[in-house]
Design a binder for these strands. Structure first.
Lengths: 206, 206
DNA sequence: GTCTATAAGAAGATAGAC
DNA sequence: GTCTATCTTCTTATAGAC
């Protein structure tokens, strides 16, 4: 029906597997079920398809923060929720969040595409750093700062705490992107990580 | 003089910046200072150049472990060295190691190339996981296990400890690969990380 | 909006002289 | 081993009918 949008979907799928330049407009058209020249009635050229995917991501990213009431843009409210959580609840929450980012089709494909294209264009590299490094670290740093202020967690640097919490998630995500069969292993390691994080920062030391 | 090897060097440089399919044999030849058809006297085709780079990496990786007497393949000896280290020495060591992996031209270019190509071929994805995830985690896990046995560090799971130590290094490395201007920031964060790691695992709790 | 036919150009690779 | 000339194929994109 909405051919224009189906083109974006199929293009993203292919770009995330092979990278932009290894995907031919014919491949995209074939998946959509039309002939290559018809694509040009919807998009000016191949690059315009890529650009439309990038543009659409911005919108999706904003929507997503609202759907998910955790990992949103309101660390104060989220911190209130976290502060009452038991360790098991925290693990459950972290695992669910991890699986969401790992399984959501659009998020996964976009992440893989950006991974492939990150060095070709500085703006794509910047987008990658923002989406998968700086934004998560900033947000979690704010969250942790509130939890530290509330006396729920104890640490000297919330910046380092955020790094300690997020880095393993990021590493595990990249493993699963390369090899989905390692997902079970990743979740097991993730549980151990959150449990230990909670133990290390969860009570006063010395 | 050694044109055959110069081809590999220039090809790797280009592949690490643009990815395999965005580099043309003409580009490689131009950098080497010959015409494209001359390349075919040295390598059967473009793919053979790529394969030769992958093959050479295996050799380099073995050599490198010997040059660097830390991060080698003998965790027992390394652990002995680490156990007598002060925090400042540990930070220095971690920073030097980080900078080595970040600055070494061949290592850096190869890592970037593999980052771009990891999803195109399962064997490249496996190589990536081995080089930048599994091998470091395994080695550091062994090292930490010895340090825990020796009573230098204290933790319940050396697997999780290795993850906690290595993940931030990996994350920071990817940041700098995308944007070398963030190197200073990365080193500052790295120092905070190692300091905190040492604090968290360095003395008995509870 | 979709099609067929086709232009235009790029890129990998070979032939054969030097 | 390097060159020039060239072949072949692939790929993007356009023209124009339906």
């Amino acid at each position: 029906m909405d051919t224009k949008h189906r083109i974006l979907e199929e293009a993203l799928t292919l770009f995330s597997e092979k990278g932009y330049s290894n995907v031919f407009v014919n491949d995209i058209a074939e998946r959509v079920g039309i002939k290559a020249p018809s694509l040009y009635k919807h998009y000016k050229n191949k690059q315009a398809i890529f650009d439309a995917i990038i543009a659409e991501m911005h919108q999706r990213f904003l929507d997503q923060a609202q759907v998910l009431n955790i990992q949103g843009n309101d660390p104060f409210r989220d911190a209130e929720i976290y502060s009452g959580f038991s360790e098991e609840q925290l693990i459950r929450l972290g695992t669910d969040l991890f699986l969401y980012y790992l399984h959501d089709d659009y998020i996964k494909k976009f992440r893989k595409m950006l991974t492939i294209e990150q060095f070709r264009d500085p703006s794509l590299g910047a987008a990658y750093s923002k989406l998968y490094v700086d934004d998560p670290l900033t947000y979690q740093g704010q969250l942790l700062a509130i939890l530290v202020s509330a006396g729920v967690l104890h640490g000297e640097s919330t910046e380092t705490m955020a790094l300690h919490f997020y880095s393993p998630l990021y590493l595990l995500l990249t493993i699963c992107d390369r090899d989905p069969s390692r997902e079970e292993e990743a979740i097991r390691i993730l549980e151990g990580h959150i449990r230990e994080f909670n133990r290390l920062y969860g009570r006063t030391k010395e």
